[in-house]
Design a protein around this nucleic acid. Structure first.
Length: 128
DNA sequence: CGAATTTGACCCGCGC
DNA sequence: GCGCGGGTCAAATTCG
């Protein structure tokens, strides 16, 4: 009764699996010493997903205090791009959106061609 | 059918 | 020591 494992995120209610997942998660994030720098940009637009050349997939939404609007979390769906993007709306200015990019892009925007030998694009990314 | 999206729940770190 | 907030993932559902 009662909810009885409503979500059981680790499935199989097992423990080993859950532990494994937990361990993996820990290892993945691993609160490393140095974290990738985060770039915050203020954008004035009614739309939050400004197609900057990358494909984003929403993976979560949470409401933050000090703000009457929920925050959206996006992640890059590229093959080798695990860049994270955070989008927050300003309560004072609903048309103002704060886009925070976390991580570093591995590919150049729009151009999907092999940029392996194109340090220029990487430099361009760094600038962003 | 596949992928993307949505919501809820869970976990960890830090503050007091 | 305990509580709260913030952040992420997973599953289910829906759209193209």
């Amino acid at each position: 009764m009662m909810s009885n494992n409503k979500r059981m995120r680790s499935s199989s209610g097992g423990s080993d699996l859950g532990v494994s997942a937990m361990k993996m998660k820990k290892m993945k994030a691993s609160r490393r010493k140095v974290r990738e720098p985060r770039f915050c940009f203020k954008t004035m637009s009614d739309v939050d997903v400004l197609d900057d050349g990358y494909k984003w997939r929403k993976y979560g939404q949470k409401v933050v205090k000090n703000t009457q609007h929920p925050r959206s979390y996006y992640r890059c769906t590229q093959d080798n791009c695990r860049v994270k993007k955070r989008v927050e709306r300003l309560a004072d200015d609903p048309r103002m959106v704060i886009t925070t990019y976390e991580g570093r892009h591995v590919h150049s925007p729009s151009h999907d061609e092999e940029d392996s030998h194109a340090p220029n694009s990487q430099l361009d990314n760094f600038f962003w």
